[in-house]
């Protein structure tokens, strides 16, 4: 127990949100009216004018901005979601139903901890429910007393949406535990070797996190094309999950429709933040081609095109979402 505690305290790094302004749709296109982060922030902490700023004193670190931003402008510094998934997957070897807790309430039982669960977007939850073999318990027993307690409703809504939009058995895989008596927690007992290995891994992890935290977030070049982690997670889900992905593709992916007014000026390629649009050589001409797996449906291309030649729709109706067509 004590050993578990040491490990937990050590992984509890200073919490903060990294902002990459080059990803913000408003920074990219002055006519964009996106205000997801502002709308969801209960503490008026996000400010967007000539730059994006999170007022540290006002911010409660509920991480809702991180999960609602369509383009990945915010990053919860202390989470590496990919390694979190793999650690949770590993935990399934030792316990039947691992518990995910938060850094705020280290006193509550958990096998792994992360920042406030507000950062779990529908895409994150889908990934957890597909990649986790067992059932994951999310320890929300401290939320009632926490200033960020409102995220519980958000999580419920998100899980409800997933259940409605897809055929994933998300209610069985992801279990929101609000009542302490319903929490099923099994200790992972470390032997000596396991303990030192865990310490070593954690110090290593801690060091790299510390480094990242200390780094002044160098603004990315605006022209760098990058998909947000949410899109990457879903891409991994649909390439991993055998069988029918229609529901996921229909509800979480987008298609652009390019009409005959397009005069191949290719200006939208510059506007697109993710690289979903590209020039393809066709015969001796060149044309616009599009890749669904890279599109986040932000609609910048649609709003930007001066010929009104491009529009986006939900869903995917082609053959391979990973190919340019």
């Amino acid at each position: 127990m004590l050993q578990g505690k040491i490990i937990n305290t050590m992984s509890n790094t200073a919490d903060a949100i990294a902002v990459d302004q080059s990803r913000c749709l408003r920074m990219r296109f002055n006519k964009s009216t996106c205000s997801e982060c502002i709308k969801h922030c209960r503490f008026d902490a996000v400010r967007i004018d000539e730059c994006i700023d999170i007022k540290r004193d006002a911010c409660s670190e509920c991480m809702l901005c991180v999960s609602v931003c369509p383009s990945g402008c915010f990053d919860a510094k202390a989470t590496d979601f990919y390694s979190l998934i793999s650690r949770l997957k590993k935990a399934v070897n030792s316990v039947s139903s691992p518990v995910l807790g938060c850094n705020e309430r280290v006193d509550l039982k958990a096998h792994e901890r992360t920042v406030c669960f507000g950062f779990l977007s529908e895409d994150h939850i889908i990934a957890l429910s597909v990649f986790m073999e067992g059932r994951l318990q999310i320890n929300l027993t401290g939320c009632a007393d926490c200033r960020n307690g409102f995220i519980v409703d958000t999580l419920k809504k998100r899980i409800g949406n997933i259940a409605k939009n897809t055929s994933l058995n998300v209610f069985e895989k992801i279990c929101l535990v609000e009542d302490g008596s319903e929490l099923y927690y099994q200790d992972i007992s470390y032997d000596r070797r396991g303990f030192f290995k865990a310490i070593k891994n954690l110090t290593f992890l801690h060091a790299s996190e510390f480094f990242e935290n200390d780094e002044v977030m160098a603004p990315q070049s605006y022209s760098a094309k990058k998909i947000p982690i949410k899109r990457d997670l879903l891409n991994r889900v649909i390439s991993y999950k055998k069988g029918d992905n229609t529901a996921l593709l229909e509800n979480y992916y987008y298609t652009v429709d390019i009409n005959e007014d397009c005069n191949n000026c290719f200006a939208c390629i510059g506007m697109c933040p993710t690289g979903a649009l590209k020039i393809e050589t066709a015969g001796d001409g060149r044309e616009l081609s599009f890749n669904t797996s890279l599109c986040i449906g932000c609609g910048l291309c649609e709003g930007f095109c001066i010929n009104n030649a491009i529009s986006i729709e939900k869903g995917f109706r082609g053959h391979n979402p990973f190919e340019f067509a």
């Binding site: 920074m27 990219r28 296109f29 002055n30 006519k31 730059c51 070049s221 605006y222 506007m271």
Partner: peptide, 23 residues
Amino acid sequence: PVTPKAMHKHENGMTIHNMERCI
């Protein structure tokens, strides 16, 4: 269309292009 503008004026009157922000 980008913020801060990639193509921008400097106080000395020059019109300067910022490569970092140009999309």
